[in-house]
Amino acid sequence: MPVPDATVPDATVLRCDGRAVADYVHRPRLPATLSPRPYLHPVRTFGGRVVTELRPADHAHHLGVSVAVPDVAGVNFWGGRTYVRDRGPVALDNHGAQEHAGWPRREPDGCDEELSWAREGRELLRERRTFGTRALSADAWVLHFASTLTNVSGADLSIGSPATNGRPGAGYGGFFWRAPKEDAADPPPEVFTATASGEDAVHGSTAEWLALAGRDWTLVFAGADERTRRDPWFVRTGQYPGVGSSLAWERRLPLAAGAVVSRRFRTVVADGRLDRPAAAALARAAATHFPDVRITG
Protein backbone atom coordinates (compact mmCIF):
# COMPACT_ATOMS: atom_id res chain seq x y z
CA MET A 1 0.00 0.00 0.00
CA PRO A 2 1.23 3.55 -0.68
CA VAL A 3 2.79 5.46 2.20
CA PRO A 4 1.73 9.14 2.39
CA ASP A 5 4.51 11.70 1.94
CA ALA A 6 4.02 14.31 4.64
CA THR A 7 6.00 16.87 2.61
CA VAL A 8 3.49 16.92 -0.28
CA PRO A 9 0.45 19.23 0.07
CA ASP A 10 -2.97 17.59 0.27
CA ALA A 11 -4.36 19.71 -2.56
CA THR A 12 -3.24 21.00 -5.94
CA VAL A 13 -4.52 24.20 -7.53
CA LEU A 14 -5.48 23.51 -11.13
CA ARG A 15 -5.06 26.43 -13.50
CA CYS A 16 -6.28 27.31 -16.97
CA ASP A 17 -4.65 30.12 -18.93
CA GLY A 18 -2.96 31.17 -15.71
CA ARG A 19 -6.21 31.41 -13.75
CA ALA A 20 -7.09 29.15 -10.80
CA VAL A 21 -10.16 27.14 -11.82
CA ALA A 22 -10.23 24.18 -9.42
CA ASP A 23 -8.69 22.60 -6.35
CA TYR A 24 -7.80 18.91 -6.56
CA VAL A 25 -7.74 17.31 -3.10
CA HIS A 26 -5.69 14.14 -3.41
CA ARG A 27 -5.53 13.23 0.29
CA PRO A 28 -8.98 13.94 1.72
CA ARG A 29 -9.65 13.62 5.43
CA LEU A 30 -13.02 11.89 5.44
CA PRO A 31 -14.80 9.24 7.52
CA ALA A 32 -14.79 5.71 6.15
CA THR A 33 -18.55 5.80 5.49
CA LEU A 34 -17.94 8.39 2.75
CA SER A 35 -15.59 6.03 0.87
CA PRO A 36 -12.64 8.49 0.95
CA ARG A 37 -11.39 9.41 -2.51
CA PRO A 38 -9.66 12.32 -4.25
CA TYR A 39 -11.94 14.96 -5.73
CA LEU A 40 -12.08 18.28 -7.54
CA HIS A 41 -13.75 21.04 -5.50
CA PRO A 42 -14.32 23.87 -5.81
CA VAL A 43 -14.45 23.97 -9.60
CA ARG A 44 -15.03 27.50 -10.87
CA THR A 45 -16.02 29.27 -14.07
CA PHE A 46 -13.68 31.96 -15.35
CA GLY A 47 -16.10 34.40 -13.74
CA GLY A 48 -15.62 32.76 -10.34
CA ARG A 49 -18.93 30.87 -10.09
CA VAL A 50 -18.51 27.60 -8.16
CA VAL A 51 -20.07 24.71 -10.11
CA THR A 52 -19.43 21.82 -7.71
CA GLU A 53 -20.72 20.93 -4.28
CA LEU A 54 -18.97 19.06 -1.47
CA ARG A 55 -20.74 16.91 1.12
CA PRO A 56 -24.17 18.53 0.66
CA ALA A 57 -26.87 17.90 3.24
CA ASP A 58 -28.90 15.75 0.87
CA HIS A 59 -25.99 13.38 0.04
CA ALA A 60 -22.96 13.78 2.32
CA HIS A 61 -20.95 11.33 0.20
CA HIS A 62 -21.12 13.49 -2.95
CA LEU A 63 -17.64 14.92 -3.36
CA GLY A 64 -17.42 17.50 -6.14
CA VAL A 65 -15.99 15.74 -9.21
CA SER A 66 -14.74 12.23 -8.54
CA VAL A 67 -14.68 8.64 -9.73
CA ALA A 68 -17.10 6.80 -7.46
CA VAL A 69 -18.31 3.20 -7.84
CA PRO A 70 -20.89 1.74 -5.42
CA ASP A 71 -20.01 -1.92 -5.95
CA VAL A 72 -16.62 -3.41 -6.82
CA ALA A 73 -16.99 -7.08 -5.92
CA GLY A 74 -19.17 -5.99 -3.00
CA VAL A 75 -16.93 -3.13 -1.84
CA ASN A 76 -18.51 0.33 -1.75
CA PHE A 77 -16.32 3.04 -3.32
CA TRP A 78 -19.29 5.46 -3.59
CA GLY A 79 -20.05 6.18 0.05
CA GLY A 80 -23.24 6.06 2.05
CA ARG A 81 -25.59 3.09 2.10
CA THR A 82 -25.41 0.06 -0.19
CA TYR A 83 -28.44 -1.06 -2.16
CA VAL A 84 -29.16 -4.70 -1.32
CA ARG A 85 -31.57 -6.71 -3.44
CA ASP A 86 -34.96 -7.23 -1.74
CA ARG A 87 -33.88 -5.03 1.19
CA GLY A 88 -33.18 -1.59 -0.26
CA PRO A 89 -30.46 0.82 0.94
CA VAL A 90 -28.60 -0.66 3.93
CA ALA A 91 -25.75 0.77 6.02
CA LEU A 92 -23.00 -1.82 5.67
CA ASP A 93 -19.40 -2.01 6.83
CA ASN A 94 -18.13 -2.46 3.28
CA HIS A 95 -16.50 0.84 2.36
CA GLY A 96 -13.26 1.06 0.46
CA ALA A 97 -10.91 3.98 -0.09
CA GLN A 98 -8.97 5.41 -3.01
CA GLU A 99 -5.48 6.34 -1.87
CA HIS A 100 -3.07 8.63 -3.69
CA ALA A 101 0.01 6.64 -4.75
CA GLY A 102 2.10 9.10 -6.74
CA TRP A 103 2.41 11.84 -9.34
CA PRO A 104 4.00 10.72 -12.61
CA ARG A 105 3.27 14.27 -13.80
CA ARG A 106 2.14 17.29 -11.81
CA GLU A 107 1.84 20.65 -13.57
CA PRO A 108 -0.36 23.73 -13.08
CA ASP A 109 -2.67 22.91 -16.00
CA GLY A 110 -2.82 19.14 -15.61
CA CYS A 111 -1.66 16.05 -13.73
CA ASP A 112 -1.15 12.32 -14.06
CA GLU A 113 -1.86 10.46 -10.83
CA GLU A 114 -1.58 6.88 -9.60
CA LEU A 115 -4.21 5.67 -7.12
CA SER A 116 -4.86 2.50 -5.15
CA TRP A 117 -8.42 1.25 -4.57
CA ALA A 118 -8.40 -0.92 -1.47
CA ARG A 119 -10.44 -2.28 1.43
CA GLU A 120 -8.81 -3.28 4.73
CA GLY A 121 -5.37 -3.67 3.20
CA ARG A 122 -6.49 -5.61 0.12
CA GLU A 123 -5.88 -3.72 -3.10
CA LEU A 124 -8.54 -4.40 -5.72
CA LEU A 125 -7.82 -1.82 -8.41
CA ARG A 126 -4.95 0.40 -9.45
CA GLU A 127 -5.94 3.57 -11.29
CA ARG A 128 -4.07 5.89 -13.63
CA ARG A 129 -5.89 9.24 -13.66
CA THR A 130 -5.16 12.14 -16.00
CA PHE A 131 -6.78 15.55 -16.00
CA GLY A 132 -6.00 18.84 -17.70
CA THR A 133 -7.47 22.18 -18.79
CA ARG A 134 -7.68 24.34 -21.91
CA ALA A 135 -9.32 27.73 -22.44
CA LEU A 136 -12.04 27.85 -25.10
CA SER A 137 -13.03 31.53 -24.85
CA ALA A 138 -13.13 34.39 -22.37
CA ASP A 139 -16.15 32.71 -20.75
CA ALA A 140 -15.48 28.98 -21.07
CA TRP A 141 -12.80 26.37 -20.45
CA VAL A 142 -12.70 22.59 -20.76
CA LEU A 143 -11.61 19.92 -18.30
CA HIS A 144 -10.29 16.68 -19.73
CA PHE A 145 -10.59 13.77 -17.28
CA ALA A 146 -9.41 10.22 -18.00
CA SER A 147 -9.46 7.18 -15.75
CA THR A 148 -7.91 3.76 -16.38
CA LEU A 149 -8.66 1.03 -13.83
CA THR A 150 -6.64 -2.20 -13.68
CA ASN A 151 -7.73 -5.24 -11.71
CA VAL A 152 -4.71 -6.01 -9.51
CA SER A 153 -6.56 -8.21 -7.00
CA GLY A 154 -5.33 -11.47 -8.47
CA ALA A 155 -8.91 -12.67 -9.00
CA ASP A 156 -11.80 -11.92 -11.35
CA LEU A 157 -13.94 -8.98 -10.23
CA SER A 158 -17.08 -7.25 -11.46
CA ILE A 159 -18.44 -3.73 -11.13
CA GLY A 160 -22.09 -3.25 -10.19
CA SER A 161 -24.59 -0.56 -9.28
CA PRO A 162 -27.89 -0.29 -7.41
CA ALA A 163 -29.58 -1.01 -10.75
CA THR A 164 -27.74 -4.31 -11.16
CA ASN A 165 -28.67 -5.09 -7.55
CA GLY A 166 -32.40 -4.53 -8.11
CA ARG A 167 -33.14 -0.79 -8.22
CA PRO A 168 -34.19 0.12 -11.80
CA GLY A 169 -32.80 3.35 -13.22
CA ALA A 170 -30.10 3.69 -10.54
CA GLY A 171 -27.17 2.59 -12.67
CA TYR A 172 -24.76 5.14 -11.26
CA GLY A 173 -21.06 4.52 -10.80
CA GLY A 174 -17.99 5.95 -12.54
CA PHE A 175 -17.23 9.59 -13.35
CA PHE A 176 -19.65 11.77 -11.36
CA TRP A 177 -20.08 15.55 -11.10
CA ARG A 178 -22.15 16.93 -8.24
CA ALA A 179 -23.34 20.41 -9.19
CA PRO A 180 -24.62 23.03 -6.73
CA LYS A 181 -28.28 23.55 -5.93
CA GLU A 182 -29.78 26.86 -6.95
CA ASP A 183 -31.50 29.19 -4.50
CA ALA A 184 -34.85 27.92 -3.28
CA ALA A 185 -36.66 30.53 -5.37
CA ASP A 186 -34.98 29.37 -8.59
CA PRO A 187 -36.04 26.36 -10.68
CA PRO A 188 -33.69 23.34 -10.87
CA PRO A 189 -30.97 23.45 -13.52
CA GLU A 190 -32.10 22.59 -17.04
CA VAL A 191 -30.67 19.46 -18.65
CA PHE A 192 -30.68 18.79 -22.39
CA THR A 193 -28.90 17.03 -25.23
CA ALA A 194 -28.92 17.75 -28.96
CA THR A 195 -32.33 16.07 -29.29
CA ALA A 196 -33.97 15.86 -25.85
CA SER A 197 -34.73 17.99 -22.79
CA GLY A 198 -35.52 17.23 -19.18
CA GLU A 199 -34.37 14.64 -16.65
CA ASP A 200 -36.84 11.96 -17.72
CA ALA A 201 -35.80 12.24 -21.37
CA VAL A 202 -32.02 12.32 -20.99
CA HIS A 203 -31.51 10.02 -17.99
CA GLY A 204 -30.21 6.72 -19.36
CA SER A 205 -29.51 8.13 -22.82
CA THR A 206 -26.27 7.71 -24.76
CA ALA A 207 -26.11 11.23 -26.19
CA GLU A 208 -22.94 12.59 -27.79
CA TRP A 209 -23.05 15.47 -25.32
CA LEU A 210 -25.24 16.57 -22.42
CA ALA A 211 -25.63 20.06 -20.94
CA LEU A 212 -26.61 21.07 -17.41
CA ALA A 213 -27.53 24.77 -17.27
CA GLY A 214 -28.00 26.69 -14.04
CA ARG A 215 -29.03 30.28 -13.52
CA ASP A 216 -25.63 31.72 -14.49
CA TRP A 217 -23.48 28.71 -15.41
CA THR A 218 -23.48 25.78 -17.81
CA LEU A 219 -21.65 22.47 -17.87
CA VAL A 220 -21.38 20.50 -21.13
CA PHE A 221 -20.35 16.86 -20.74
CA ALA A 222 -19.10 14.59 -23.52
CA GLY A 223 -17.38 11.25 -23.79
CA ALA A 224 -13.95 11.68 -25.35
CA ASP A 225 -13.81 8.31 -27.10
CA GLU A 226 -16.23 5.89 -28.70
CA ARG A 227 -16.28 3.45 -25.78
CA THR A 228 -17.14 6.13 -23.22
CA ARG A 229 -19.96 7.44 -25.41
CA ARG A 230 -21.63 4.01 -25.27
CA ASP A 231 -22.17 4.38 -21.51
CA PRO A 232 -25.58 5.82 -20.53
CA TRP A 233 -25.72 9.13 -18.72
CA PHE A 234 -26.96 9.15 -15.13
CA VAL A 235 -28.81 12.44 -14.59
CA ARG A 236 -30.51 14.12 -11.65
CA THR A 237 -32.01 17.63 -11.56
CA GLY A 238 -35.16 17.43 -9.41
CA GLN A 239 -33.83 15.86 -6.23
CA TYR A 240 -30.37 17.34 -6.69
CA PRO A 241 -28.23 18.42 -9.68
CA GLY A 242 -25.70 15.81 -10.76
CA VAL A 243 -24.40 14.11 -13.89
CA GLY A 244 -22.40 10.92 -14.22
CA SER A 245 -21.56 8.22 -16.72
CA SER A 246 -22.55 4.67 -15.86
CA LEU A 247 -20.17 1.70 -15.96
CA ALA A 248 -22.93 -0.76 -14.99
CA TRP A 249 -26.29 0.57 -16.16
CA GLU A 250 -28.28 -2.68 -16.35
CA ARG A 251 -25.74 -5.48 -15.94
CA ARG A 252 -22.52 -5.94 -14.03
CA LEU A 253 -19.28 -5.09 -15.81
CA PRO A 254 -16.88 -8.07 -15.58
CA LEU A 255 -13.22 -7.30 -14.98
CA ALA A 256 -10.95 -10.33 -15.17
CA ALA A 257 -7.70 -10.50 -13.22
CA GLY A 258 -5.26 -8.10 -14.87
CA ALA A 259 -7.95 -6.59 -17.13
CA VAL A 260 -8.32 -2.86 -17.74
CA VAL A 261 -11.30 -0.52 -18.14
CA SER A 262 -10.77 3.04 -19.37
CA ARG A 263 -13.04 6.04 -19.77
CA ARG A 264 -12.35 9.62 -20.98
CA PHE A 265 -14.45 12.76 -20.60
CA ARG A 266 -14.51 16.39 -21.68
CA THR A 267 -16.49 18.87 -19.57
CA VAL A 268 -16.95 22.47 -20.64
CA VAL A 269 -17.29 24.91 -17.73
CA ALA A 270 -18.97 28.11 -18.90
CA ASP A 271 -20.32 31.33 -17.48
CA GLY A 272 -23.93 32.07 -18.36
CA ARG A 273 -26.99 29.96 -19.08
CA LEU A 274 -26.39 28.55 -22.56
CA ASP A 275 -28.96 27.39 -25.08
CA ARG A 276 -28.69 24.26 -27.24
CA PRO A 277 -26.76 25.80 -30.19
CA ALA A 278 -24.22 27.45 -27.87
CA ALA A 279 -23.70 24.24 -25.88
CA ALA A 280 -23.23 22.24 -29.08
CA ALA A 281 -20.67 24.73 -30.35
CA LEU A 282 -18.66 24.48 -27.14
CA ALA A 283 -18.79 20.68 -27.25
CA ARG A 284 -17.29 20.83 -30.75
CA ALA A 285 -14.65 23.35 -29.68
CA ALA A 286 -13.62 21.19 -26.72
CA ALA A 287 -13.04 18.24 -29.03
CA THR A 288 -10.43 20.20 -30.97
CA HIS A 289 -8.36 20.71 -27.82
CA PHE A 290 -8.73 17.15 -26.49
CA PRO A 291 -9.45 14.96 -29.54
CA ASP A 292 -10.66 11.39 -29.32
CA VAL A 293 -8.13 8.65 -28.63
CA ARG A 294 -8.95 5.06 -29.47
CA ILE A 295 -8.91 2.90 -26.33
CA THR A 296 -10.04 -0.56 -25.32
CA GLY A 297 -11.54 -1.93 -22.14
Results as ranks from 00 to 15, higher is better:
residue 292 D to A: 15
residue 95 H to N: 02
residue 220 V to I: 14
residue 261 V to A: 14
residue 134 R to G: 00
residue 243 V to R: 07
residue 57 A to D: 13
residue 158 S to P: 03
residue 237 T to P: 06
residue 20 A to C: 03
residue 11 A to E: 15
residue 145 F to Q: 08
residue 254 P to L: 10
residue 60 A to W: 08
residue 21 V to I: 13
residue 291 P to T: 13
residue 166 G to V: 09
residue 187 P to V: 06
residue 110 G to S: 05
residue 8 V to N: 05
residue 136 L to Q: 03
residue 150 T to V: 15
residue 157 L to C: 02
residue 148 T to S: 15
residue 264 R to K: 10
residue 292 D to Y: 01
residue 258 G to F: 07
residue 191 V to S: 11
residue 15 R to D: 02
residue 90 V to L: 03
residue 134 R to F: 05
residue 93 D to C: 07
residue 214 G to Y: 12
residue 203 H to L: 00
residue 4 P to R: 09
residue 123 E to S: 04
residue 151 N to Y: 12
residue 151 N to E: 11
residue 269 V to T: 07
residue 42 P to F: 10
residue 190 E to P: 00
residue 185 A to W: 14
residue 15 R to T: 15
residue 164 T to P: 09
residue 93 D to R: 13
residue 284 R to Y: 00
residue 40 L to N: 03
residue 232 P to I: 11
residue 257 A to Y: 00
residue 107 E to Y: 01
residue 248 A to S: 14
residue 237 T to I: 13
residue 226 E to S: 15
residue 180 P to E: 09
residue 83 Y to L: 03
residue 260 V to R: 14
residue 212 L to C: 07
residue 253 L to F: 11
residue 179 A to T: 05
residue 236 R to V: 02
residue 154 G to M: 09
residue 43 V to L: 15
residue 8 V to P: 06
residue 71 D to S: 06
residue 291 P to V: 09
residue 227 R to I: 14
residue 214 G to Q: 12
residue 138 A to W: 06
residue 121 G to S: 12
residue 96 G to T: 01
residue 188 P to D: 04
residue 147 S to P: 01
residue 73 A to Q: 09
residue 106 R to I: 12
residue 229 R to I: 08
residue 19 R to S: 05
residue 278 A to D: 11
residue 167 R to Q: 12
residue 109 D to G: 07
residue 61 H to Q: 12
residue 133 T to P: 01
residue 148 T to W: 06
residue 78 W to V: 07
residue 78 W to H: 06
residue 65 V to T: 09
residue 81 R to D: 07
residue 48 G to Y: 11
residue 202 V to H: 05
residue 65 V to E: 03
residue 186 D to L: 14
residue 19 R to P: 03
residue 168 P to T: 10
residue 187 P to I: 10
residue 297 G to I: 12
residue 93 D to G: 10
residue 123 E to T: 15
residue 61 H to C: 00
residue 198 G to W: 08
residue 103 W to A: 13
residue 130 T to A: 02
residue 23 D to C: 13
residue 117 W to Q: 00
residue 156 D to Q: 04
residue 50 V to A: 14
residue 3 V to A: 14
residue 277 P to G: 05
residue 2 P to G: 02
residue 177 W to F: 09
residue 178 R to N: 08
residue 226 E to G: 07
residue 280 A to I: 06
residue 111 C to D: 14
residue 181 K to S: 06
residue 100 H to F: 15
residue 135 A to I: 01
residue 24 Y to F: 15
residue 65 V to P: 01
residue 240 Y to P: 00
residue 145 F to T: 00
residue 249 W to P: 02
residue 38 P to S: 11
residue 113 E to V: 15
residue 150 T to E: 15
residue 125 L to T: 01
residue 11 A to Q: 13
residue 126 R to I: 07
residue 98 Q to D: 06
residue 9 P to G: 11
residue 131 F to L: 10
residue 116 S to I: 13
residue 297 G to C: 10
residue 277 P to H: 07
residue 168 P to W: 12
residue 157 L to K: 03
residue 80 G to Q: 04
residue 292 D to P: 12
residue 283 A to R: 11
residue 96 G to Q: 04
residue 13 V to N: 03
residue 119 R to N: 03
residue 218 T to Q: 00
residue 246 S to K: 04
residue 292 D to M: 13
residue 11 A to I: 11
residue 222 A to H: 02
residue 52 T to R: 06
residue 209 W to I: 10
residue 184 A to Y: 04
residue 94 N to P: 04
residue 196 A to W: 01
residue 271 D to M: 04
residue 192 F to S: 01
residue 71 D to T: 04
